[in-house]
Design a binder for these strands. Sequence first.
DNA 1: CCTTGACCTTCCAGTGGGTGGAACCCCTAT
DNA 2: ATAGGGGTTCCACCCACTGGAAGGTCAAGG
Lengths: 132, 132
Amino acid sequence: MNIGTVAERANLPAKTIRFYEDIELVKPARLKNGYRDYTEVDMHRLRFLQRARSLGFTIEECRLLLSLYEDKNRASADVKAIALGKIKEIERKISELKSLKTTLKDLADHCHGDHRPNCPIIDDLVSGGNSK
Amino acid sequence: MNIGTVAERANLPAKTIRFYEDIELVKPARLKNGYRDYTEVDMHRLRFLQRARSLGFTIEECRLLLSLYEDKNRASADVKAIALGKIKEIERKISELKSLKTTLKDLADHCHGDHRPNCPIIDDLVSGGNSK
DNA sequence: CCTTGACCTTCCAGTGGGTGGAACCCCTAT
DNA sequence: ATAGGGGTTCCACCCACTGGAAGGTCAAGG
């Protein structure tokens, strides 16, 4: 299977698939003309990668998940631990963004937003505000 | 004022301040010995940058905000528009992360998390799941 | 047989926003 | 004289790609 076909089927840009080969996440065979030749097994790995990346796992986490995926004796607890860690991470990011939003909204609410130059947002940026 | 002093006062690493010079956000004078020499005006810019960055504005947004900051005739509406745009952006990110979290949590909830190899998280990653 | 166009190849550079480190200079105190 | 704690430059690296140039390959149509 050529890279274009596999790209479409795995829902990944060809560039990304080549990049994944660079970092040794997939190792396709080569045809006589130098074209990459993907098997169904490669396809599964790529689909797995696409899905795991879209769930927010980093490349290194994907590498780990792939090795667990291929280890028929893995404990599901190992996989669950990674997922739970990721959830905690996402929660941290959400609360960080929420407080950012609150701060920004407070600033915007105090700004007239008209043609006059006086602007409390700028004033806050200058003086350093009180929330980090 | 030397870079170390200004770094401490603006709450930014010296490396970052040099980087900001590289991308022309600050242009400190130089002493005869080659050391950077910061004025209070430079300090204000750096503090402004520190604060704006910590509020999630990109470097380019900071550049724009700085130019508005220095334009005594700017309309506060211009600044407000940037802040409101940023709020929308943050809201998008939050909802994206929330749906990610939900998906991940559903997966984790269905996983026994024990010593057995059977794992619904991996199964989902393989089969592609139903939420993007 | 030739051309066209879609596909494939490699390699190099850039993104954003810094961070780490090496190798070297400068200033002050002892 | 030397030790330390500044400062300087430059180059490489992080992450996860993405864009583009320059060229090779293949199938279809004239």
